[in-house]
Simulated assay, not measured.
Amino acid sequence: MLFINSPSHYAPFNIACEEYILNNFPEDVFLLYRNDASIIVGRHQNTLAEINLDYVKEHNIPVVRRLTGGGTVFHDLGNLNYCFLMNRTGDEDRGFTKYTEPILAALKDLGIEAKLEGRNDLTIKGMKFSGNARAVYPNKIHQHGTILFFSKITDLSAALKANPLKFKDKAVHSVAARVTNISEHLTKPISLEEFIQLIQKEVLKFYPDAREYHLTEDDKKGINTLMKSKYETWEWNFGHSPAYNHKQSIRCSAGTIEFHIDVHKGKITGLRIYGDFFGERDPSELESALIGLPHRTEELRKALESLPLNEFFGEITVEDILAGLI
């Protein structure tokens, strides 16, 4: 097994790193990384339904879709992420147990009683400090998890506070849970760096052949290429969302306007606009102009700026309409 500590705190790089290792390393790998403030969305989720888009834009937070299923999580530098990228051995029927054992053992060394609860959560006194996800391939196991050490819980709550009334879909939705930081349960304070060493020590007990490995320049080049072509793109992070319906009402100078939008593969496939506004032209013309566009701000703003909006609604701005469309 190889021990790898990522040299980066940039979420798209680190999520790309997981896939790069999965596809290019024949050895078993244990990867650790920390991300600056970022949101990591499950493979089968509707990104817009999981995040507080206004908060994410205001704080310039990267949103990245991962390869594994499960729910959306918030990362910051107080959160340690671990990942096992393993060759299959026939011992894959233990669910999340096998690769969470070293984490639980490390906490036991610190005098903290933690356990695997439900399907994929690690908890302390019933409070979640680690969410885990996995994917099983013909020859590989990919399991990873978060470890809240001294994460900013208030930022986590704000970033993931999406409006559930806006969306109707069949995507997998995250379930709110009471969360806690490991640091709150320590009898003697330790640094995150010391905790990382303890994790590595426990992994070494389970995998005695483990040795340290540093990403080469070729590795970094390959990861960056994958990052730019996939994990930094709107198409993967937002457009890959399952089909969904978006409904939003706004109140502006023109009156009350309600938008009903159907989205498939990230593009608007249906749009109906209702309201008590007074316009000279039928809004069906505007509806037709927006169908087929990606359901994202940049393209919609460009299209709206080219249209005579006041003729459809009366006194209205591009930003008013965007508030109803996104």
Rank of each mutant, 00 (worst) to 15 (best):
Y82R: 01
K265M: 08
H214M: 02
E258V: 13
I316Q: 01
L156F: 14
R272Q: 13
A176E: 10
I103W: 10
V41M: 08
C252P: 03
N224Q: 07
L226Y: 00
I190F: 04
T89P: 01
K188M: 08
E305C: 11
L110K: 04
K168W: 09
I291V: 15
F149R: 03
S151K: 03
K57H: 14
P12G: 08
F206R: 12
H75D: 13
C83I: 03
E319N: 12
H240D: 08
P102E: 11
K166P: 01
E287I: 04
L2F: 15
N181T: 05
T317D: 09
E217Y: 00
K228I: 00
G145P: 09
L116K: 14
D218M: 01
I273Q: 01
K115N: 12
E305P: 03
D262M: 02
E58F: 13
E18K: 08
E184A: 14
I112L: 08
A158D: 14
G42N: 13
G70L: 04
E258G: 04
A114P: 03
N87I: 03
Y20C: 08
I291L: 05
L156E: 09
Y82C: 08
A303P: 01
I147T: 10
L160S: 12
L271D: 01
I190W: 06
L80K: 00
I261V: 15
N24L: 09
I39T: 09
Y55A: 15
V263Q: 05
F129T: 04
H75L: 12
G95K: 04
Y82Q: 07
I39C: 11
E311D: 15
S229G: 00
G95Y: 07
I61A: 04
A323W: 03
E212Q: 11
N224D: 06
N46I: 10
V179T: 14
P102N: 12
N132F: 08
K115S: 14
G279V: 07
I196F: 02
S174C: 11
E311Q: 14
T72N: 09
E58V: 05
F278H: 10
I4S: 05
V29T: 15
P12A: 09
I268T: 01
T100S: 15
S183M: 08
A11V: 09
A16V: 10
L110Q: 07
T317G: 11
K228R: 06
T97A: 11
F149A: 08
N224P: 00
D209I: 00
H144E: 02
V63Q: 05
N139W: 12
K115D: 11
V73M: 10
I326R: 14
H264W: 02
K57R: 15
